[in-house]
Amino acid sequence: MEIPYTVVARRDTGVWNAKVGIWLFLASEVMLFGGLFSAYVFLRLDAGPGDWPHGVLNVPVGTFNTAILIISSVTVVLAWAALKMRQFTRYRIYMAITILCGVVFLVVKLGYEWPQKYVHFGARIKESELAKYEKYLGNQHLLAEGFAPRKEITGHLHNPQALHDPNIKEYEIALDPVNADPTNKKMDRPHFFYVPPTEKIGIVEKADVEYANMFLPKHSSYFATYFTITGLHGAHVLAGVLVFCYMLLPASTRLYRQNPEHLANRVEVAGLFWHFVDLIWIFVFPLFYLL
């Protein structure tokens, strides 16, 4: 006996095997990302006022990447539609565009966005010493405006060896605009465009610092969740790209010649996975970039 319903749907359930399989798999993926997002909710609810950073990611770049993923979602469904209409050349073009989008997304994420964070520095000041750094934090001003306090001084670290050398007693930071000019009302809310650190150097004594690090996963709960969720999401994008590459190989062409419906089913299943990856990003984008 051969395994039935690999291509043609079973009558009483109305679906073919892989369709059930992929939806079950996506159900488990919902729970996987559900666990991570619930961790995000848990940690964010638990964070005190001013402990959750805002506006530290590059919004235009994130918007661009969101658009890239949405476009790839459209092209993959068009690729499937082309196969259904037996337009093989068109299918290959759409597939190639989808792969290109996936690669662009990964390059932007791993080649630009993440490395930009590794070189950024943030020092969280001890609760008791906040007043000492009022000139960088501007908490009086924020209090008057009804905003949560700032507890962190960020920018580019001028003396990176200070992170490891216990003999160096202070951090020299090329301050971010928000710390260079903290009482400026324009700084109360995040910017749309990324603004690089200023020329102004701020000195922070290590003894006053609760915790300081580059913008790495270990920097804070925010970056821990950001890197973990976008990393896992990136791994999914990579997996999708690899599957789509397979769909362009000669083996798939041969399958098309023998049984086009089978290839269409495969593309549909891979497409469902890809849409799901897009769907996750639709939530990741506002949660980390905008809110």
Binding site: T13, G14, K19, W23, A27, V30, M31, G34, F42
Partner: peptide, 25 residues
């Protein structure tokens, strides 16, 4: 198909449970 919806009903319910109880805790 109805089958797919049924799978997803369960998933949505449990994922909401995960969030709701995490929040409640």
């Amino acid at each position: 198909k109805r089958l797919i919806y049924r799978i997803l009903y369960f998933t949505v319910f449990f994922v909401l449970g995960l969030f709701w109880l995490t929040y409640l805790a």
